[in-house]
Amino acid sequence: MDSESPDFVPSVFVYKKHSQRPEGKIERPSRKRKRDERETVTQPAPPPPPVDDTCTVEETAEAMVPQKDYEDLVTKHGQLQEECVSLRKECEQLRDENAKLKEKLKNAHFTCSTVKPDLTQFVFLTGLTTVIFDWLLGKLVGSVKKVTHKLSLEDHLFIILIKLRMGISNRYLAYKFNVTDSTISGICRSWLAVMAHCLQPLIKWPSKQAVLKHMTKIFKRNFQRCRCITV
């Protein structure tokens, strides 16, 4: 304000003329920040601490494997590899053998041909030796017929003899020979009648006098009319 103006009032403060660019005050912090960034970039980074790559002779000796131990390890490794190969071959052989046995067990059935080699078992089941069995089969051939094609004529006669001797149920025989219950019933019905007719000449009933003659005293006293005993 002009000092000659009637509104002029003296002041104790020193008057400063305002800047022609007030936005310069706003740009001042930005300029200072840029100067600080330039100073930070120009300063070199401190070098990394030196790495002590020196190694003593004792540490090097401890890190190395002795030659003898190394050779022993190589030999043992070779032996283990050979043993591993041998075990793999043995495992393959056992696996093949197991598969063959499973297949054999799956295909194996209870038949006359499988039991016939065991004479003791065959006599126990049928009551006949293999020679008499073959003779009886030859006598019946031509008079009997197959009830099922799953079983041979030997199996048909084998079933009849087991049924007569052991008294086994038809269901169990059907299970053992892998057929149905009706098949076992059909074999029994057709074969028993033919066997009774063909083997009738072999059955000799003694007379009453012969029975009484050879009867024991206790039977004579209590069972005078006894002609036979079925077991």
Rank of each mutant, 00 (worst) to 15 (best):
G167A: 15
P46T: 14
S190Y: 06
H214C: 06
K176N: 10
L192I: 15
P22E: 10
K104M: 09
H214K: 08
A174M: 03
V115T: 11
P50Q: 08
I162L: 13
E103C: 05
E97S: 15
P49A: 01
T129I: 07
T183L: 00
R227W: 05
S185W: 00
L128D: 04
Q93C: 08
F8T: 08
S5T: 07
K204T: 08
S143V: 10
K145F: 01
Q121F: 01
F122R: 09
A45N: 04
I229N: 02
P22N: 09
L128R: 03
N178L: 07
V231H: 07
E23I: 13
W135D: 11
C198I: 11
K16W: 12
R227G: 02
W191V: 08
F13H: 07
E37W: 09
A63W: 03
G24A: 15
R225P: 00
H197Q: 15
A61C: 07
D69F: 02
K76F: 00
I168M: 07
T75P: 00
A99Q: 11
F122E: 08
R33L: 14
A108H: 09
I159R: 04
S113F: 11
I203N: 04
F219G: 06
V41G: 10
D181F: 07
I184D: 02
M215E: 01
N178P: 00
V147N: 01
H18W: 05
V14R: 14
G127T: 06
D155A: 03
P6C: 09
K89P: 01
D96V: 11
G78T: 09
K104L: 11
K139T: 05
C91H: 12
N170T: 03
E71I: 08
M64S: 04
I218H: 13
V131K: 14
I162R: 07
H109M: 12
V147C: 04
G24C: 12
R227A: 04
V123W: 02
Q67F: 08
A174Q: 03
D118P: 05
G24D: 15
C84P: 00
K104E: 10
L101Q: 10
D155V: 02
Q209R: 04
S190M: 05
K106L: 10
K25D: 12
N107V: 05
Q209F: 01
N107S: 13
L119A: 14
V41N: 13
E62F: 12
T60K: 14
P117N: 06
K102F: 12
H197G: 10
L137Y: 06
Q43W: 06
K100M: 13
L137K: 13
I184Y: 04
P44E: 06
K150S: 13
T126V: 06
L199P: 00
Y15T: 13
S113R: 11
F13Q: 08
R38I: 13
C84V: 09
K145Q: 05
W205V: 14
I26W: 15
W135E: 10
K68V: 12
L87Y: 09
A108L: 15
I229V: 14
S5M: 09
S113G: 04
A196I: 03
H197Y: 15
V123S: 03
L137G: 04
E71M: 12
H156Y: 10
L192K: 14
T60N: 09
C188R: 07
R21T: 00
V123D: 02
E39I: 08
V211P: 01
